[in-house]
Amino acid sequence: MFLEFVEGPLWYFSVVVFVVGVLWRLVDVFRQPSRTDLSAARAGGVAGALRTIVTRSWTAKGFSRGATFHLVAGYMFHIGLFVLLIFAAPHVKFIEERILGFGWTPAPHWVFMVASDLAFAGILLLWLRRLMHPVMRKISTFDDHAAAILTFVVMLTGCLALLKSHDSLRAIHMLTVCLLMIYFPFSRLMHAFTFPISRAYTGAAMARKGVNA
């Protein structure tokens, strides 16, 4: 009964909130007014935008020592989460049956284990660093902690339900997924969609000014 509710009405409600919310946030970003640059552009903005999208994927020289922890733990978490989300066998089946109508070859079990270990270790380390580092602690908001904890709980409930032997475990996982999807558009989790926009905007603006940023 509870599983039917979570996978039925609550799931559809969550999808609507997620899709509409994300679109609304993206439209809002593009509708932000920008000042007209009256100076002559020194270089093309598109090239700068594309370059910055790529180069911001690692730390700039001079910051590498202090940012190594974030770089390593960040990639551990994001790559692990991506593999779990897209290639975990239960997710591939769910996407095929409930969303797209087609699927793809899921990752073997050992890949799933490595990905989940990377993701769990990464998010734990990043969140603990946020709590323990005095500067990180001061600049962190409720949203940062809520997003980290909710994401962790979703991953955890998913892994606990891996055996697929009990509907109750699956229902708990689906419930947390729905909560995350509802929370997603109103949180900093939106960076999953806005990071290329942000990087491109900065890169294009700096390129027009002749700055290699």
């Binding site: 769990f120 339900a161 055996l163 032997s165």
Partner: peptide, 21 residues
């Protein structure tokens, strides 16, 4: 207990490999 044990078994096996690090 069955559901709890199943969850505990999966969680234990998944988190275990992180502990050596």
């Amino acid at each position: 207990f069955s559901a709890t044990a199943a969850a505990a078994k999966e969680g234990h096996n998944l988190f275990g490999p992180i502990f050596p690090f």
